[in-house]
């Protein structure tokens, strides 16, 4: 996701964590305000292209080698590269968070990675191999050329919300409040309980593979409904947007609730 998605996910999580959890992570992250999760939600992206942070560049995705729209599915052994992927990273950084022998700075970084990667695994194109998660597919968006990955990361959500694009934190906060209401008493009320079924703290791979497979299924149904070649050069801000927007809302809501 772009900043808007990551920050919204963090604010949704802030709305559902227990008091004890809030105090625990405020301590670990050194931030006593309501922005303690939102303020670090994009940190992993900010270090990704720096020299020292380069080790983490492959941690944001898993390249599912499936065949959309005919066949979707993620296989951990087949798809997670030797130097890591979003699923192995969630395992690694969750276990670092649970290891009280590590230095506080290590656990602080682990928290920032977990907060970010729970978000990324819910973006369908972070769980897809085709054209590097859609980065190599040129499409049109409101008459301008973009790559498909960027459209799913940012453009669709930004169009949904409208308003001033520069006010990312305000927009994310507002979006998070709306989605929190939908989870607590709106359209997600009944299904949200099942979003956290079968969470296993001692088996982060199994847990995040459920999330990855769910996310990847949207690659077949909504990202490439007619296959990857049919979308090249298409204008996506119309009918395609109308179908994709509810998926993005749902995935952001789920990511926030599951992160909490």
């Amino acid at each position: 996701w772009g900043s808007l998605g990551h920050i919204a996910i963090a604010y949704i999580a802030s709305n559902f964590v227990k008091e004890n959890t809030e105090a625990y992570f405020q301590g670990l992250l050194g931030n006593d305000t309501e922005h303690y999760l939102a303020g670090v939600a994009t940190w992993a992206d900010s270090i990704r292209y720096t020299k020292w942070g380069r080790f983490s560049k492959n941690f944001h995705f898993i390249d599912a080698k499936d065949d959309p729209p005919t066949y979707c599915g993620v296989d951990f052994v087949r798809d997670c590269k030797e130097d890591g992927c979003v699923v192995s990273s969630l395992q690694n950084y969750t276990s670092q968070l649970l290891d009280s022998k590590l230095w506080p700075w290590q656990r602080n970084q682990a928290a920032k990675f977990v907060i970010h990667f729970v978000g990324d695994i819910h973006q369908p194109l972070h769980v897809e191999n085709v054209a590097q998660g859609g980065n190599g597919i040129h499409v049109n968006w409101q008459g301008h050329e973009f790559n498909l990955h960027h459209v799913w990361d940012s453009s669709i959500a930004e169009k949904m919300l409208g308003g001033n694009r520069r006010k990312t934190y305000d927009n994310a906060f507002r979006w998070a409040s709306d989605l929190t209401d939908e989870i607590k008493s709106g359209k997600y009320l009944t299904e949200s309980a099942s979003w956290i079924d079968g969470l296993l703290l001692d088996d982060p791979i199994a847990t995040s593979m459920v999330w990855a497979n769910e996310s990847n299924a949207y690659v077949c149904s909504h990202v490439f409904p007619e296959g990857p070649t049919a979308i090249i050069g298409q204008e996506l801000a119309g009918e395609y947007f109308e179908k994709a927007a509810p998926v993005i809302e749902l995935q952001v809501a789920k990511a926030g609730y599951r992160l909490a």
């Binding site: 004890n20 992570f25 969750t94 977990v114 847990t207 599951r258």
Partner: peptide, 20 residues
């Protein structure tokens, strides 16, 4: 729910999903 589980484990508290 993931952060709740982590905080519970580290605080020696209960392992259920609490308020969620």
């Amino acid at each position: 729910a993931w952060l709740n589980l982590i905080a519970d484990r580290m605080s020696g508290g209960e392992k259920d999903l609490g308020e969620l």
